[in-house]
Each structure stands twice: as structure tokens, then as C-alpha cells.
Amino acid sequence: MKIAVLSGKGGTGKTFVSVNLAYIQDHAAYVDCDVEVPNGHLFLPMDRASFEPVDVMIPSVQTDRCNGCRACVDFCAFHALGYAGGQVIVFDNLCHNCGGCRLLCPQKAIIEHPYNIGSIRTGNFEHVHVVSGSLNPGQMQGSAIIRRMIAQTRPFPNQILDCSPGNSCHVVQGILEADMCILVTEPTVFGANDMRICIELLKLYNKPFGIVINKSLDTRNYIKTFCREQHIKVLAEIPLQPELAVLNANGQLAAKQPEYRRIFQKMLKNAHSLVAPQNL
């Protein structure tokens, strides 16, 4: 099963949940889709990682062919093209490599060339296959890296997609691919607010999802109330414990300890129960 781990708010414990869920499964691939700040490798350090640069194709304009019609400039939704001094100016880092400008150009003046946006590291930690994407600073198109990592790990029966916080295009790439989504939240006002925004996004894509309440206190909190009212399944609660914080800060996997392993096993079982078998 492919599980996308999301949160809305940053710092709720997506990577904590993701690396441990990957670790308790056989034949699992952990995919770090948080390409702006990948950090899963701190918990799953790779043995002899392979390195692969990721290039995308971006446009350049043959000025002798361009007649200044500006069809490309007007088309580009990301404003990666401008027209000044009688020529098309390309802003490489804003291009989302859709190829539309090249298709539209009536003069066939646009050609494409490869442009490096980041890299993918692949390796193993114990029995876990680890894939970690990294977007170069200043680049916008991390989705291309995420799509490539997801394609490479399709042969694995189990994938954990550790997504970035927020509700950006990067997160959507993970949601699109997933069989179900786990939304990690914390019992704070920020955690609840950003969780609600993320739920709206998940409903747009009609994906089954459940909630994990991290740093949970033994009292009633409005996340539990909200989930009960909205009929949203709480897959697991992870208690607020100094010991977990220490383990995490030391880059240790909580699931190596039986009492915590049980929490992740229950989480995984509940996640499976949300997905109809024929959809797997």
C-alpha cells in the first residue's frame, strides 16, 4: 500500500511517523518527498547511496526565428517568460517545464535544453529502501523530482511518501499517487487549523485518510472532538513523552522499542482498514 504522510503545519511529526512506518514493514520504500528540506535520511542513513542528478527540459528561444508575436509570453502561467528589447527573456528557475511555449510557437523558434534542478539519493537502511530527493536552492519545480522518485519506487509493494508541510503542488504529487493519506497533527491551535485546510485538500482528491495525533495529551482536545463530529478516523495517538523527544533528537527509530512499535503497528492496521482491498 502507498501511504502519503501529510500535516498542513510543519513540525507535527510527519518524518517521525514516516520513518517508523517504513521500518515496521517488509519490502517498504521510504520516499522523502520534502525536497526543500529532506531529513528522513537522518533516521534512515543509507548504506552506499547512489546519486542521480535530476534535469528538466526548459526553453531557449532562437532569436533569428522569433518574430516577437509573444504567444509564449502570454501563455506562460508562471511568468517565466518576458519580452523586452525585441527578444524573449527566459527566467530559468521559474519555468515549470510544461513545454507549452514550444508547442504554441508559430515560428518553431523555441527549443529545449536540460537544466539541473536537484538530485535523488537512493540506498538502503537495514531492510528499508530509502529514496531522498533534494531541490537546489532557488528552484521552484520540485514536483519533477517527486514524480521521478515515485516512479522509481513503484515496484515496491509498500511505499511511505513523506510529504512536505503545507498544501502546495509538492504535497499534491504525493496525494495523487497514494492509496490513502495519513494526516499527522498535534493538539495545538496551529495544528488544528492547518489540519482542517489539509482535509479540504484531501476531499478534493477523494482520497481515504485518517488522523494521527502526535504529542497527544491525556486530556480531551478539540482535534479528537473535531474528528468525532466529522466522522474522521483517528488512526493512532502518540503520547507527549520526553523519551520520544530524546530518541528523535538522537536520530533513533522509536519503532525499535516494542512499546512504541505497537503504536505504529496499530496505526498501520487502522490505515489498511480505511482502504477497500480491491483498491490496493
Partner: peptide, 13 residues
């Protein structure tokens, strides 16, 4: 919106 600087520059041009 996005890329406001580029759009403003294009408007000037």
C-alpha cells in the same frame, strides 16, 4: 499574484 515583479516590469516595457 505570483511573479509580480516580472509582470510589473513587463507592464513598464
Amino acid at each position: 499574484g505570483q511573479s509580480a515583479g516580472i509582470r510589473a516590469a513587463q507592464l513598464m516595457i
